[in-house]
Every structure is written in structure tokens, then in C-alpha cells.
Design a protein around this nucleic acid. Structure first.
Lengths: 211, 211
DNA sequence: CACTTGTTATAACGAGTGTCATAGTGTAGC
DNA sequence: GCTACACTATGACACTCGTTATAACAAGTG
């Protein structure tokens, strides 16, 4: 339940901005745990030790604003971690990133997944096209980073595009499966298979099967 | 919104059992659309044209029973479809299954995903270890079917195990990404990459990287 | 007819939800 | 001092939620 805050985000002049930021990070954590409709502003505020009365001061658009900012923050956080892994580990970058995710999953006993996934799969009849936009923005950012990396590794553009989407899909799917299975087998599986797709530099056997 | 009922499920003697079954299938559909906490018994009953007063007659354990039976039904349904694809298409079986999923996604305009995923990622503090069990049962069934198929295709046991989990992870992840992106690119990506993992019969380059 | 049995109708309970209005607090600048 | 303003406290509104209790209904059986 305890959340370690590492961001030095400063925005306004006062100490309350760290309270605002803590609400965002707590919302992201609870989103990853319980889903979009599983969290309430009251609970987020309580967990963030922020006064409920002030959430509508910091987030005048209400819950959807909190959720969107949580998605953006989590997306940015994962993007910078991915970038760091890829730039410092060269051809093993993806594997290191996978293993980081693996460790985080077991650290939290499969209670936490990906907040962006949680926001992606819960439709509501009326509201919030903006949530979907924040979700696709996050996915897009990860894909761009991965795509650039794969191009640097010598893959052609088309394969880099497909492979980057495949990697992200596998990760997100494996996180879901691990939470269902309550063990790490799905993640260990993609750690065993995905790197072989990256290692293969010539993608000749791929082209003939495209439509 | 219209739900086509294809199952010939008979259980009790009366026509009301089709009402009961319709509640299950409607719950599965709404679960796939709005998530575990996004559905209410009242709404499911209304959508299934079943009287609210009788849901607690057919499902005395309440919402959790409805959800569990919906998961079981959806898991069984997907399992039999997967089995059919694999047995009638031999080495293209997975590809056919992927394309079926792809078509279903666009048919429902990315509104519907996988009900089992929805149930897998929403933790609640107190209740329902049984939901998690139903989820992992469904995943396990799919994995067994895929694993047997891959063994028949000539893969060794360890690779078949890893690859089957990778395939399921990729599909579930791609479904999530497609809903986020609101387009089919993620699914087209895994259709381009996954079959190459299946086509490769010798997994020699895989073994050296395992821990 | 009475009687059972499977099903439905209706109303209510307590709890939780997002949101808002209003009043109160503190602190910085004059 | 005092005003301005960012923030917080409190309580309320209208709503939905899962669940239960209780009564009614329909149909078959004796």
C-alpha cells in the first residue's frame, strides 16, 4: 500500500502541489489495482492523505481529470523507464525492461497491473473520449520509443513497426495473465520468446505472409 | 447491442432456463464492454430482458455467481472456437483464430474486449477468490489446447509451453491496445509476427537464453 | 378444491457514488 | 492592521449499487 514518490515535480509555489501530485500518483496506483470504476475520489483522497474538499480545487473537472492526469503520468513514467533501459543496455534493452516489469509484478503480489490497460478496457456509454485519447497517447509514445530502437538495431521499418506493437501487446497481455494465474509463468514465457523476434535481423520470412 | 444466442444449453425443464442462460451471456458481453465494476445486476437483467426479481432466484449467490458463470461460459466458448480453428486448419490454425478475433474486434467497433481480462485486472479488497479461479481456469484451458497443438506441430515441450503463453498474452494485449488505439494496427502486428514464432520448428536459439 | 413448486413483482435497506455550495482557514502582500 | 487568494472542511443532493423480504402469480398434482 505504501507508495514511494520519486518525482520532483514542482508546479506551483506551494507545498500543496506535492499533495496534488500525490493524488495523481495514488490514483494511478489504485487504477492499476482496482480498475477505472473501482476507485472513488473519496478513496483516492484518503489514500493520498489529501483532503477530499480540495480535490475539486486542484481538479475542477472532477474524476475524469484525475484519471486522465494519472494515465498521462503513468505513461510518461513507463516511457522514460523504457527509454533508459534501451539506451543503456543496447541489444539487451528490451530484456532488461521485461525483467524490471517481472520483478515489479511479483513485488506487488500480482495485485497491481497497468493503469493504462485498466482505463482502456472500460467503456462507458456517455463520457470521456478524452480518456481514450490519453490511453492511445501513452501507447503511442511507448511504440515510438521501441520503434526507433528497433530501427537502430538494424530492422526494416515495417518489421520495426509490427514488432514494437507485438512487444507492447505481449507485455500488457502477460501482465493480465500473471494476475489471473497469480504466478510469473506468462511473463517468463514472453521473456523466453520475444527476444528471439528481436534478435532476428532479417525478416525475409515475414514478408510473404502479409496481406 | 443485439446478442445472438447460439447455445442449446438446457438444464431445467422449463423455458425459463433460456432466460437464465441469456443473463449469463448478456453478463459476459457487458463484462467485455464495461468491466467488472461497470456492470450492475439491474442493467444486466434489463439488457437480457429478464426480470430483476428472478436473478436472485437463478443466482442465489448474487453478482459474483453471475460473473463467475459468465467467465466460465465465455472461456468455454473461446476454447471450443480455438479448438475448431486448430483442428481444421492445421499449420494455419492460429492464424485463422487470430483473424476471427480481428474481425470480431472491428465488428463491434472496439467496444468489446475479453470478459476474462476484465475480470482478471480488477482487484477488490475483500471478495471473490472464486473469480480469480474461474479466470485462471479459462486461461489454462486455452493454454492446454494451444500447447497440445504446438506439440503436434513438432515443437518441443518447453518451447510449446512458452509459445502458447506468449500467443495468449499477445492476443489479450493486442485486444487491449486495439481498444485504446481504436484501430486494428496492434492486431495486424501480431498476425504478422506470431506466426513466425510458430513456423520455426527448431528452437535451438531459444535454449541458450533461458535462466 | 387445496397444495406445492418455480418464478416474478415490488418496495425497501444501508451504503457508496460524483458533484456542488458554502463557509472557514491560513498566509502573503500592502 | 487588512484585504486577497489559495486551500480546506463540512454537509448536502440526487443517484446507483447489491441485497433482502415479502407478497403475488402460474402451473401442475393430489
Amino acid at each position: 500500500m505504501t507508495l514511494v514518490i520519486t518525482s520532483g515535480f514542482t508546479f506551483m509555489s506551494k507545498a500543496s502541489s506535492v499533495g496534488r501530485q500525490r493524488v495523481i500518483e495514488t490514483a494511478a496506483m489504485m487504477l492499476a489495482t482496482r480498475g477505472l470504476r473501482g476507485i472513488s475520489i473519496r478513496e483516492v483522497a484518503k489514500a493520498a492523505q489529501a483532503p477530499l474538499g480540495s480535490t475539486y480545487h486542484h481538479f475542477p473537472e472532477g474524476k475524469s481529470q484525475i484519471v486522465i492526469e494519472a494515465i498521462e503520468w503513468a505513461g510518461e513514467r513507463a516511457a522514460s523507464e523504457l527509454k533508459a533501459c534501451l539506451s543503456t543496455n543496447n541489444e539487451n534493452g528490451v530484456r532488461v525492461f521485461l525483467e524490471n516489469w517481472r520483478n515489479r509484478l511479483s513485488k506487488y503480489s500480482f495485485q497491481q497491473g497497468c493503469p493504462i490497460v485498466a482505463a482502456a478496457i472500460e467503456n462507458s456509454d456517455d463520457d470521456e473520449q478524452n480518456i481514450k485519447r490519453a490511453v492511445s497517447d501513452a501507447f503511442n509514445k511507448w511504440q515510438d520509443i521501441l520503434c526507433d530502437y528497433l530501427l537502430e538495431q538494424g530492422h526494416n521499418e515495417h518489421y520495426a513497426h509490427s514488432l514494437s506493437l507485438t512487444i507492447i501487446s505481449s507485455i500488457e497481455g502477460a501482465v493480465v495473465l500473471c494476475r489471473g494465474y497469480q504466478n510469473l509463468q506468462p511473463f517468463d514465457a514472453i521473456i523466453a520468446t520475444i527476444p528471439t523476434l528481436i534478435a532476428r535481423k532479417n525478416s525475409s520470412d515475414l514478408r510473404e505472409n502479409n496481406e
